[in-house]
Design a protein around this nucleic acid. Structure first.
Length: 479
DNA sequence: AAAAAAC
């Protein structure tokens, strides 16, 4: 049943690269798609997240470029022969790196262009000539218009995350790009999700295509445990903290629906003492790449992100994904939770459902064709930090300055950042009023309390009573 | 109800 790469008729340089990367057996999508792509036919491919779609199109693509090397009698020495389009910059970067590794022992050149970065180095690479160009749509159009990229010799175009590339937000750019390509070409579409409408639309871009479906489209990976909890407002953050602790999760993606919500949640979790980075489209590209690298390197535990990170990102061993907000599109749910449970690993996906989200949950249920059980969640008691912080913010907005600082933590605890930075469970700290921070640097420099011996729940008051306390304005708000 | 992708 399982088929080894070595049984494929791939050129020696490709075989060598694959072997060096430690690949032995193909995944189902690879075993099915590679022979078909090798024929040069158009393909629409659907397979669950985390099952190796990039290799499924990239390896046979490179093979064809190698084998039909002299097919196009071109004046340029290295015309762009294959174009790979993706919906986010990080994904373009990732796929380009992967393709470069596969092509390492061949003479084929590849590069990537995306926005948020200087045009010049990209232009230089393009002028040198590349056979394989990986890109996001906006920046590619810039390069086309500047005549840096000439696409008249393209033989293959790949739309990765094809349903996203064909949706209304991307379609105009995509159509313009396609108008620069020869009509006679191979088109490859890959995604984990295809709605019936997008499938129909996709059909109009393909000629006599072969459809490859490994399992049902929109199916979630069986390696991901999916849980849905009923929880509202600030309790969501407490729920996240509780589950992180309970399940001893080392790291997690936390998805939110808006950029502002992303920045706010990241800040709040940071104040809770969790090592957090935020990733969304309003950040500079430098910050975006740094956030992702810090997460990959394990320097941050939580990556709070918008749907910019929902698709395709392949980070090894992410143990959990939280949906702090239920996504607006059910397809995005499938992609978000696909950041965990990859390559056969197990993963946990927790979705926090507010009262008004029931319709969105029904949409997800219909799409993934699985019954969803909405569970209650018992929250450990803890002083409502979120409310306190709201008070801080209110104070800042009113006065145009920062709220007064809480007394130095080191004075009360003798703690130090070094202690907090050791990998003791950061969840077991007693409640501390969050100090207002004027900037990142002073926050970083602030001494941290040592982890407490007892648990948060040692000091329990019934939740309702605590809530009642806050019917009166929070103390900090009156400063 | 949003995000993403160009400056």
């Amino acid at each position: 049943m399982t088929q080894a790469y070595s049984t494929l008729a791939l050129a020696e340089p490709l075989q060598r690269a694959v072997a060096e990367m430690g690949y032995e057996n193909m995944t189902p999508i690879q075993a099915q798609a590679i022979p078909v792509v090798l024929t040069g036919k158009d393909v629409m491919g659907a397979a669950q997240t985390g099952t190796g779609k990039t290799a499924a199109f990239a390896l046979p693509l490179l093979q064809r470029l190698l084998k039909h090397e002299n097919a196009s009698a071109s004046p340029a020495r290295h015309p762009v022969r294959a174009l790979v389009l993706l919906p986010t910059r990080e994904l373009a970067d990732q796929v380009a790196q992967q393709i470069a590794l596969y092509a390492k022992y061949t003479r084929l050149r590849s590069t990537v262009v995306f926005g948020g970065m200087d045009m010049k180095p990209q232009t230089l690479e393009l002028k040198k000539g590349v056979e394989v160009l990986v890109a996001t749509p906006g920046r590619l159009l810039d390069h086309i218009e500047a005549k840096n990229a000439v696409l008249g010799q393209v033989e293959y175009v790949v739309l990765d995350e094809a349903d996203r590339m064909l949706d209304i937000g991307f379609l105009p750019d995509l159509q313009r790009i396609l108008s620069y390509l020869p009509k006679q070409r191979t088109t490859l579409l890959f995604s984990a999700t295809f709605s019936p409408e997008i499938k129909r639309l996709a059909g109009s871009y393909l000629q006599d295509p072969i459809t490859i479906e490994v399992a049902r489209p929109n199916e979630t990976a069986s390696t991901v445990e999916q849980r849905f909890f009923s929880v509202d407002g600030d309790d969501k953050r407490r729920a996240i903290r509780k589950i992180l602790k309970e399940r001893e999760l080392r790291q997690a993606f936390i998805f939110v629906n808006s950029k502002l919500g992303c920045a706010r949640l990241a800040r709040a979790l940071e104040r809770d003492g969790l090592k957090t980075a935020a990733l969304h489209g309003d950040k500079s590209q430098d910050e975006r790449l740094k956030a992702l690298e810090a997460f990959k390197a394990g320097e941050v535990d939580l990556l709070v992100c918008t749907d910019v990170a929902a698709r395709g990102l392949d980070i090894k061993d992410v143990p959990a994904v939280f949906n702090h907000d239920v996504p607006f599109n059910a397809e995005d749910y499938v992609h978000r939770i696909g950041r965990t449970g990859r390559a056969g690993a197990s993963g946990l996906a927790v979705t926090l459902v507010a009262g008004s989200d029931t319709r969105l949950v029904t949409d997800i249920e219909k799409l993934i064709k699985k019954k969803i059980e909405l569970e209650p969640i018992e929250l450990d008691d803890e002083r409502p930090r979120g409310r306190f912080n709201d008070g801080q913010r209110a104070w800042r907005e009113e006065s145009g300055g920062d709220a007064p600082r809480a007394p130095a933590r080191s004075a009360r605890h003798g703690g130090h950042r070094a202690a907090a930075a050791s990998r003791d469970p950061f969840f077991d700290r007693p409640y501390e009023p969050a100090a207002a921070t004027s900037d990142k640097a002073s926050w970083e420099a602030m001494p941290r309390p040592t982890p407490a011996r007892g648990s948060i729940s040692a000091n329990i008051k019934p939740r309702r009573k605590v809530a009642a306390l806050f019917k009166a304005p929070a103390p900090a708000a009156q400063a």
